[in-house]
Simulated assay, not measured.
Amino acid sequence: MRASAGAAYDLGYRVVWCPTYRCPAFGGRVKDRFKELIRAEAGEHGWEVVALGVMPGQLRLFVKPCPTNSPSSMAGRLKGFTSHHLRAEFGHLRSRLPALWPRPCRVATAGAVPAETVRRSIETQDERPSTGGGGA
Rank of each mutant, 00 (worst) to 15 (best):
Thr124Asp: 06
Trp17Ile: 02
Met55Lys: 03
Thr109Asn: 12
Arg128Ile: 14
Asp126Lys: 10
Glu48Trp: 12
Ser72Ile: 14
Met55Val: 00
Trp17Glu: 03
Thr131Met: 08
Val16Tyr: 00
Ser130His: 09
Tyr21Glu: 05
Leu86Lys: 01
Ala88Tyr: 00
Lys35Gln: 05
Thr131His: 07
Leu59Gly: 03
Cys66Met: 06
Gly43Trp: 02
Ala7Lys: 11
Tyr21Phe: 12
Gly111Gln: 11
Asp10Leu: 14
Phe90Leu: 02
Thr109Trp: 06
Arg33Pro: 05
Thr117Pro: 04
Glu123Thr: 09
Arg120Ile: 01
Glu127Cys: 14
Arg103Tyr: 07
Val15Gly: 04
Pro19Tyr: 02
Arg120Ser: 05
Gly27Arg: 08
Ser73Thr: 11
Leu97Asp: 02
Glu36Phe: 09
Gly111Trp: 15
Asp32Ala: 09
Gly53Trp: 00
Arg106Thr: 13
Ala115Lys: 08
Asp10Gly: 12
Pro102Leu: 07
Arg106Ile: 13
Ala3Asp: 00
Leu59Tyr: 00
Gly91Met: 02
Gly57Thr: 07
Ile38Pro: 10
Ala51Glu: 10
Val118Cys: 13
Arg77Tyr: 04
Lys31Ser: 05
Asn69Asp: 09
Arg94Cys: 05
Ala42Leu: 07
Leu100Arg: 04
Val118Ala: 12
Lys31His: 05
Glu44Asp: 09
Pro24Ile: 06
Arg33Phe: 03
Asp10Lys: 15
Ile38Phe: 01
Gly134Glu: 02
Phe62Thr: 10
Thr131Leu: 14
Met55His: 03
Tyr21Val: 04
Gly76Ile: 01
Glu116Gly: 14
His92Ser: 09
Val50Trp: 13
Cys23Lys: 10
Trp101Asn: 05
Val118Ser: 08
Ala110Glu: 08
Leu37Ala: 04
Thr68Glu: 01
Met55Phe: 00
Arg33Trp: 00
Phe81Pro: 06
